[in-house]
Design a protein around this nucleic acid. Structure first.
Lengths: 146, 146
DNA sequence: CTTGCCTCTATAGTCACTGTAGACTGTAGA
DNA sequence: TCTACAGTCTACAGTGACTATAGAGGCAAG
């Protein structure tokens, strides 16, 4: 259980050194002890927290949500429903993105299927890109994040 | 068919004024004529191109792909297969993201379903976030973009 | 002529990191 | 002990695809 340097922590948790320092800088990670020469020294709790963050990020939780979850972790007696609702929110977001992506998939498939080769000039894919009319039912919302 | 100002173009194509100027700055849009006082003046071709860009972006095509597609548009006699392959690539990307999102959905669903209320301390959702082991089969790739 | 919106340029901010520069530290082999 | 060389430090710039802001000037209606 000796303290480890940032490089070891990085490997242990699968998070890049620079990213760990970044997490520290935005207050997600808390300042670690330092060696005499100023190198960061971490205990096991750091590995845990870092893995927690990474896992949450892998699941697509936005930074704010991760921050909240970490905060909640420090209040073990608090009711679990807050955690639940963050997770449900995330699930809802994921489902929304899924729907959007499915719509995209359908349209792309249609576009590609309609192409019969030939010149760019009368390419159906190009035509489809030009005419927004015959498309996606007013899905005006841009798709971003993940 | 009079030339229009950037504001009108913005409304016509559904792209923000600042975004139009941004597209110009990165060479996606080409420099328009200017009025005596220096205001940008656009013709119908601009509306078309801008709609094209917007539609492609809505479909999730990355900027580079959009650039290529625009380039191809200027070579109407070129073979259409390049267009096709860009679209297929995009479809493949969309499908990949779909798969990743489906995996996320499954895990989130599982996490949430396992929660039985109570305190944060023994919340299953938290537990799931802590233990990366019982999770996503090595889907180490981070999910980004869209 | 004034009001109020539109447009201009240039610059900084966003998110979640990643990369770089230049200096210092720690360790393993010769 | 000397020498490599990998690891670490800080601070700052860069990424993509925009968005926001500041401060100045333009244009049309009332």
């Amino acid at each position: 259980m000796k303290p480890m340097t940032i490089g070891r922590l990085s490997k242990a948790a699968g998070v890049k050194v620079t990213t760990i320092r970044y997490y520290e800088s935005i207050g997600l990670m808390g300042e670690p002890d330092r060696s005499e020469s100023g190198q960061r020294l971490y205990g096991n709790d750091a590995t845990q927290r870092l893995s927690f963050i990474r896992h949450a990020r892998d699941l697509g939780f936005p930074m704010d949500a991760v921050r909240s979850l970490i905060q909640l972790q420090t209040e073990p007696n608090h009711d679990c429903s807050a955690v639940d609702s963050i997770a449900r929110q995330q699930l809802a977001d994921v489902r929304k993105r899924l729907n959007q992506l499915e719509a995209l998939e359908a349209e792309l498939k249609r576009m590609i299927a309609s192409c019969e080769g030939g010149k760019v000039d009368n390419c159906r894919v190009m035509a489809a890109l030009n005419d927004h009319n015959e498309c996606l039912n007013d899905q005006h919302e841009r798709i971003h994040a993940m």
